[in-house]
Amino acid sequence: MCLAVPGKVLDIEDRDGTRMATVDFGGVLKEVCLEYLPDLRVGEYAIVHVGFALQRLDEESAKRTLQLFENLGMLEEEFGDPWAAAAATPEAQR
């Protein structure tokens, strides 16, 4: 939950008066709120925490971080099935 993951903005739309984007996290797509970074553009990267873009990030370091998270299975921890994770033994999580 504490994790903030870098993602790339794919497209931006207005929903109910709120600026929302589709963001790509190494292949996982999520809806993300841009209200805290309203000038973020399509193609740019940002640090995203629980569905909110919080700070801009340059492409190179964003990609490096995503690669690291992927290698460590941390994207699965963040975006995987939380019920399965809560039910699994910690040994099985490793």
Partner: peptide, 20 residues
């Protein structure tokens, strides 16, 4: 729950609930 990183998303959500 959460620290200063998680509080703004939750704040925005309450703000939106009131606005909508």
């Amino acid at each position: 729950i959460g620290f200063e990183t998680t509080a703004p998303p939750n704040a925005m959500t309450v703000y939106q609930a009131r606005r909508l």
